[in-house]
Amino acid sequence: MSRRDTAAVLALAVSERDHIQGPAGAPVTLVEYGDYECPHCGRAYPIIKKVRERMGRRLRFVYRNFPLRESHPHAQHAAEAAEAAGAQGKFWEMHDRLFERQFALDDEYLVEYAGDLGLDIARFREELAAGVYEPRVREDFRSGVLSGVNGTPTFFVNGVRHDDAWDFEPLAAALERAAVTRQPPPGTAPDPA
């Protein structure tokens, strides 16, 4: 029995709203729906780093929030903290810090990390308290649900859900295959040749 009865595809195309690492014209786009408090996402984090090194400029990586608030009490605030850091130009630095310090995600730690990254702490604290990025995180979550995200982490390779294992080898192999087929993500214009 195939695990994929219908191929789940990304419901919200990658756009300027997203946090993106890698060149816009890369033949392969990897989207992760993740949760900073999810241990599996924590395990995926170094794998993604390795995969990015291997793929180089052929890969663009997008991270979207899918906080499982009922299972992970810190996940929502951690996601909002990364967005708040993003508003000050330090999304990826915070993203990395949160996965590296997954065991310490209480609000006081989030503020400490913001300080370490040289952010405007007063602004960071205020925005977190006011839930300024709550709608943004919810929008990510909702787009995940509509895309068939069932848990975290869930990956999409060029817009199609990656249902195989995401250990380094199988994930890298899937990305290499996608790089060869150069299948453009659904809902986007193909790359100009």
Binding site: M1, R3, A8, A11, V145, L146, G148, V149, N150
Partner: peptide, 12 residues
């Protein structure tokens, strides 16, 4: 299929 999480996208 019994072993497959149907997700929530169809419901939404």
């Amino acid at each position: 299929p019994l072993g497959v999480n149907p997700g929530a996208d169809g419901i939404l």
